[in-house]
């Protein structure tokens, strides 16, 4: 059994109340559907279904006739729905920040709560400006900021948990902690690249899109390799820590699903690749524009990307929380894998 080190006595005083963690969990529970719906807005190009902001067709956002919203056109349904859900996320973020301020003694997490409030307001303003200016670059930034805010919610959720408070430091394995962090960073970079592909300007040259897609694919391969190594090493080095093994396994599953969704996204958008053209199924396949299958596949690919970032971040935060950098765990041999030395 590896030696363990308790955290400083100050830690035991932290997070006495469970409310911040509950609110953070609720925030996560609302933010993920918000990312789905936001992604659906982009997929179905419904962003300009409501031309004003912060009002909806002149009504206060919350007073817009619900019958018109629910039984109106699809684009209006999801764009206004996206705004309502975003407002709920904003209010919950404020509630969480207040709860952190009142119930959590840690100064840095109070600041993190304030950052979340600033972030959610900033994201809302960005979305509003995207509508008012009908600007594709702002839409791209809005699409990149969404997962970043989701990651912040994940961080708040992890850091307010009992596990975080009670965690005992373990000798570091060296590479594992860095690997988790790099995987989380790469997941976000991949999301940003995906947003560039998705929001490509209509006047862009074909070779720009081609380069972005190639980069997105190349990074997907790198990420796949990273996640594979991460799962193997987490299971190997931290098998006695279900709080690490579970997210690592989940990350592996999500990554596999995501690769499948990525391929499916291409097929439902652009048909089968040319090298499959001679296969009977591919030769006769016709893409169905604006179908529910197309919308949901593309949206699921985007949302799963955010989920991968979230799980990678959970793993990274927990790994770093456990790491006692003063001591190195005894590891049989030394190997270099993807530039990470154990």
């Amino acid at each position: 059994m590896s030696p363990v080190v308790a955290h400083s006595p100050a830690l035991s005083k932290l997070s006495q109340s469970r409310w911040p963690h509950r609110l953070a969990a609720a925030l996560l529970g609302l933010t993920f559907p918000l990312i789905w719906i936001g992604s659906l807005v982009t997929t179905t190009q419904a962003g300009m279904a409501v031309p004003d902001w912060p009002n909806t067709y002149g009504y206060n956002l919350f007073l817009y006739p619900w019958q018109t919203w629910l039984w109106g056109p699809w684009d209006l349904l999801i764009e206004h729905g996206h705004r309502l859900l975003a407002s709920a996320v904003g209010l919950l973020t404020i509630a969480l920040a207040v709860a952190l301020f009142c119930l959590d003694g840690r100064r840095w997490i109070r600041w993190l709560g304030i950052v979340a409030v600033v972030g959610v307001i900033g994201q809302g303003v960005l979305g509003g400006m995207r509508v008012l200016l009908d600007d594709r670059t702002l839409a791209k930034l809005h699409g990149c900021a969404g997962p970043a805010f989701f990651a912040l919610c994940v961080a708040l959720w992890v850091c307010t948990s009992m596990w975080w408070t009670n965690a005992k430091r373990r000798p570091t394995t060296g590479g594992l902690e860095r690997l988790t962090l790099i995987t989380a960073l790469l997941s976000y970079v991949q999301l940003v690249l995906g947003a560039q592909v998705r929001h490509i300007a209509l006047g862009a040259r074909p070779d720009v899109f081609q380069m972005l897609v190639v980069m997105h694919l190349a990074l997907a391969l790198v990420l796949l390799a990273h996640v594979t190594v991460l799962v193997v090493r987490t299971v190997h080095h931290r098998r006695d820590q279900p709080a690490l093994v579970r997210p690592a396994m989940l990350l592996g599953v999500l990554m596999t699903v995501q690769v499948g969704l990525g391929l499916a996204t291409w097929v439902v958008k652009y048909g089968s690749p040319a090298w499959l053209a001679d296969w009977g199924w591919a030769a006769g396949y016709t893409v169905a524009a604006d179908s529910m299958l197309q919308a949901m596949t593309v949206t699921a690919h985007v949302a799963t990307g955010s989920l991968i970032l979230a799980v990678a971040l959970v793993l990274a935060l927990r790994c770093w929380r456990l790491a006692d950098w003063g001591r190195q765990a005894a590891v049989a041999g030394s190997a270099t894998l993807l530039g990470v030395t154990t």
């Binding site: 048909g271 089968s272 030769a283 006769g284 396949y285 016709t286 893409v287 524009a289 604006d290």
Partner: peptide
């Protein structure tokens, strides 16, 4: 109908 085997989709739903 779209053009089968190519990226030209069917806009049947419009």
């Amino acid at each position: 109908e779209g053009v089968p085997g190519t990226a030209m989709p069917s806009f049947r739903l419009l």
